[in-house]
């Protein structure tokens, strides 16, 4: 990024500095929450019980039938994707020398972020743990009880 040096006596423009400041604050605030969310996610999904072996559609269906885990995963989705995208933006700004390339990469990053946040949010809210016509042995146990 090219550095613009303002006229020394021009009034202080705060706009850009504040945006960067909010980004800086966001990384720290979301980071603390993400440590809790992701450590909990790894503990429940990879450490408890049979770990990675136990993860299948029925496992996800069981978790997402509980609003607690829906909110947990939704928060993780939003916070982590924005945290990661903003981190990548920092790297793009550090390692590209041409402003045009930086801009293209950054727009691509935020577009990918927006698509995945939207997709993930829709999946969490429209998820059906007992889809009609699916083989019963692939579904959570509570599906057959209905």
């Amino acid at each position: 990024m090219s550095v613009v040096i303002e006229q020394p006596r021009s009034p202080r423009s705060r706009k850009r500095a504040n945006l960067e400041k909010y980004g800086w604050m966001y990384m720290r605030a979301s980071g603390v929450v993400l440590v809790v969310l992701i450590f909990g996610h790894l503990f429940v999904n990879l450490f408890l019980g049979e770990g990675i072996k136990a993860i299948d559609f029925a496992f996800v269906g069981g978790k997402w039938s509980d609003p607690f885990w829906k909110v947990w995963d939704l928060l993780m989705l939003w916070l982590a994707l924005i945290h990661g995208t903003n981190g990548m933006r920092t790297l793009v700004n550090d390692y590209t020398s041409k402003p045009k390339i930086a801009k293209t990469l950054n727009i691509s990053l935020w577009a990918i972020c927006a698509v995945l946040v939207t997709l993930g949010t829709l999946v969490i809210f429209t998820f059906d743990p007992c889809p009609a016509g699916a083989a019963a042995e692939l579904l959570p146990s509570f599906c057959s009880a209905k």
Binding site: G87, T126, A134
Partner: peptide
Amino acid sequence: IFFFLLVHVLDTALVRLSPEAYN
């Protein structure tokens, strides 16, 4: 971690498609 996250959101989204696809 960022690149894994991109893949992980996509693979988890398969639960919306079918149990077979996700599994």
